[in-house]
């Protein structure tokens, strides 16, 4: 009895330490993102801006209107992506499910591109709510495809392959549409469709937060059910869970999260798979009440880091965020597949 209480206490301490470290890393990356950029300012000057006693307007503008929104956007959207991936992994009981590999992000991208082109050609500019809505619809459509496939194939590797195929098809159509659309605004669209956290302003941040945080809270509330679902549908049902409603909720919440990301930053790959996996490995548990917030923190740091690399390594040229996340995320996927080889994916 005492020995076992001891283990539980040690586990608790370990988890608290992990969370403290995750929060610490996040703060460091946020600071790094604010302090570095294509124009080099001395750190003291930026600190002055942050504490509101700087008189140089150009620095204030760059920090407050570009760097801070960009850092916050990378953090919140990165966290959202990681949680979205986690929810999909629960839904498909498959560790390599994620919004990007299942083609959900690409579906959203296609829908957003089509709506934008439609509006641009009529001389109108789509507001962020409109972009989010079309992104959500796009992700729901490709989720629908994936669900139809999942109903027919039992093997989870086939599911992933069909997801990647759907992703390619959507991307191809998007590229096609973007290339042939005749408007100068399309240049922006092209940048967006490659994936980037640039150009997000503080109004966007408000919309993003108002979407992501309530969904995150709802996900946390559902963590008891998500936990039970790990035992499989039969046991979850026998514990009194309404499986149909639960699955619909999972897909909806996950789609809202990934659609928000796609709407503002375009498709960002592999965060959804790599981060929850790394977090599980660090926390040595799969308890959703711990994994969800930890994945959010981890996803936030991961995207901040990737964004930092994307905009500083070849400055003033920027890499697309997807290329950087892929460099770190794709090996994680390969690693998971290799490890699961024994138990057959």
């Amino acid at each position: 009895m005492t020995a076992e209480r001891e283990i539980m206490k040690n586990q608790k301490i370990y988890h608290i330490v992990c969370f403290a470290i995750l929060i610490g890393i996040l703060i460091i990356f946020i600071a790094l993102s604010i302090y570095s950029g294509s124009i080099k300012y001395p750190p003291e000057q930026i600190t002055e801006v942050l504490f509101g006693n700087c008189i140089d307007n150009s620095i204030v503008r760059i920090v407050k209107e570009i760097r801070i929104p960009r850092a916050l956007a990378s953090a919140v959207l990165g966290g959202a992506l990681a949680v979205s991936g986690f929810l999909l992994q629960v839904f498909f009981s498959n560790p390599i499910a994620g919004p990007f590999v299942l083609g959900i992000s690409s579906g959203a991208k296609l829908a957003v591109a089509m709506t934008m082109i439609f509006f641009l050609e009529r001389g109108m500019i789509l507001n962020s709510a409109g972009i989010m809505l079309s992104s959500f619809i796009g992700s729901m459509i490709s989720t629908g495809f994936i669900l139809a496939v999942a109903g027919r194939v039992r093997k989870s590797s086939s599911l992933i392959v069909s997801g990647i195929m759907i992703g390619y098809i959507c991307s191809a159509i998007t590229d096609f549409a973007v290339t042939f659309a005749d408007d100068s605004n399309i240049v922006n669209l092209h940048n967006w469709s490659m994936g980037s956290f640039s150009g997000i302003d503080s109004d966007d941040i408000k919309v993003i937060s108002a979407t992501v945080f309530p969904v995150l809270a709802l996900t946390m509330v559902m963590s008891k059910q998500i936990g039970a679902y790990r035992l499989g549908e039969t046991y979850a049902r026998s514990l009194g869970i309404n499986i149909k409603l639960f699955r619909i909720m999972l897909i909806l919440l996950s789609s809202i999260l990934s659609a928000t990301v796609t709407a503002f930053a375009g498709p960002v790959s592999f965060v959804g798979i790599a981060v929850p996996h790394i977090i599980r490995g660090i926390l040595k548990t799969s308890k959703p009440s711990l994994i969800i917030p930890a994945s959010f923190l981890g996803g936030a740091s991961f995207c901040l880091m990737c964004d930092l690399i994307a905009r500083t390594v070849f400055a003033p040229n920027e890499l697309s965020i997807g290329s950087v996340t892929a460099v770190f995320g794709a090996p994680a996927v390969i690693f998971i597949m290799l490890r699961r080889k024994k138990t057959e994916v």
């Binding site: 560790p95 790990r230 035992l231 499989g232 039969t234 046991y235 599980r280 040595k284 548990t285 799969s286 138990t343």
Partner: peptide
């Protein structure tokens, strides 16, 4: 049904 929960 065989269950294979991760890290439980």
């Amino acid at each position: 049904d065989r269950i294979e929960p991760e890290l439980m």
